[in-house]
């Protein structure tokens, strides 16, 4: 998508990652800003189901032609599912970062961690700062 967007129903991490919380589970991905700075994503190197990821630490890598970025976990938890489509079509991260470009689904380890994340307005403000 070519226009910046930051959906209201998500929570944001300052390292440009989002979390969509659904009960005890959360879906994670990177923001429009992150995919735009990275350029066309050519490869996604994710964790395995069953891996434990921790808040503020890298859990995956995304590559463009001439850059590699760590993807930082906004929340801690156990990986339940890794987006299977990103192996063959990593461009989904550019085309639809909040939809088909999602990265992993986790079982949340500590619901209280979500309190430290930003809402859309706060994240948008942080980008303009």
């Amino acid at each position: 998508m070519s226009e910046p967007s930051y959906p209201e129903d998500l929570l944001y991490h300052p390292e440009h990652d989002w979390a969509r919380i659904d009960g005890s589970e959360a879906t994670l991905g990177i923001t429009w800003y992150a995919q735009d700075s990275l350029g066309e994503v050519v490869f996604f190197d994710g964790p395995q189901p069953g891996d434990t990821i921790s808040k503020d630490s890298p859990y995956a890598e995304v590559e463009s032609v001439k850059a590699v970025s760590d993807v930082i976990a906004p929340l801690s938890g156990e990986v339940i599912e890794v987006n299977p489509d990103l192996a063959d079509a990593p461009e989904a991260v550019n085309a639809d970062p909040y939809g088909t470009g999602w990265m992993v689904r986790i079982r949340i380890a500590d619901p209280a961690e979500a309190e430290a994340l930003m809402d859309a307005a706060a994240y948008r403000a942080s980008l303009e700062a």
């Binding site: 590559e63 463009s64 032609v65 001439k66 590699v68």
Partner: peptide, 11 residues
């Protein structure tokens, strides 16, 4: 090229 030193540096 992302494998290489000029991009991935210490990794």
């Amino acid at each position: 090229q992302t494998r290489e030193q000029h991009i991935r540096r210490e990794k």
